[in-house]
Design a protein around this nucleic acid. Structure first.
Lengths: 153, 153
DNA sequence: GCTGAAACTAAACACTT
DNA sequence: AAGTGTTTAGTTTCAGC
């Protein structure tokens, strides 16, 4: 499932991740090609799974999501059963925007977006009642300096 | 610039953040309305800045971005001048996908997406040569359990 | 594998109720 | 504030080069 990408493919991806509402004509012009070949490349990239879902970025604060926490989790339970339960829990909870299993002494990191500190506490209480964790540190974001999903192509 | 949103607005936003490639007709049907009113609402939400850029999600691994680090930064320099320099640095570096200023003893957290460990080291060396930091801890992601930008509307 | 055009589909906005 | 209709624009496919 390896995909060979040339410079034109990369330029197309770069344009799409910057602004996916552009028309084929616009993209074609920017990458120095024309409609049909660009369309064929996009279709190929979509089929290969390189291009995923198309989304819009929403303003969290305008929608009342004023609190963002990074949660560092240490666990003493490293069995498969515990892990499956934990994975399911974080995947199901919509306030968890990111979850990564880490190397090193911290086992997991979560990014949690909620309305306020109270809502975070509710989330936290619900989580620890579902799965046992050894140690939890919550880092509260005071300011979002940068936030993008764009890859540095 | 406050925005009052009713349930229909929220449903529209929810649909858009899930799949922005849907046609107006599809969205209208799902939210129990029709084209024109939905279009007017979307336009209003865009003008208000609630709806931001339209993007595509790209598969990091398919594009050779195999390493993801969360970087915890402590600084002893809390002057405005240092901060400006730091903010500029992280905003300019495309490998930094997220940057937050934190409350507590860790001052900043970054999410850094790079090709491999070597590329991270290059980034790290470049960063500390630009701005002085007191203490840096890099957490290496072994597995992306979940990654979304969707807000839990 | 590109160009250009045809056929189709949706977006945008004015006008009507 | 919602529905209808028209204009314009964009997508998708395909024939010809």
């Amino acid at each position: 499932m390896s995909v060979r990408l040339d410079q034109v493919d990369r330029k197309i991806l770069s344009e799409l991740q910057e602004d996916a509402s552009q028309s084929l004509d616009e993209i074609a012009k920017k990458v120095g090609s024309s409609k049909t070949p660009v369309w064929n490349r996009i279709r190929k990239l979509r089929d290969a799974g390189v291009i995923g879902a198309q989304t819009v970025r929403l303003d969290p604060e305008a929608l009342g999501f004023d609190a963002c926490f990074f949660v560092l989790i240490r666990t003493s339970a490293h069995e498969k059963e515990w892990q499956d339960k934990f994975l399911t829990a974080v995947r199901e909870r919509p306030e968890v925007q990111e979850a990564h299993r880490l190397a090193g002494d911290i086992d997991y990191i979560l990014k949690v977006r909620v309305e306020n500190a109270r809502a975070y506490d509710k989330f936290y209480q619900a989580l620890i009642s579902e799965v046992r964790v050894h140690n939890v540190t919550a880092l509260l974001s005071m300011e979002e300096i940068k936030s993008t999903t764009a890859l540095p192509l």
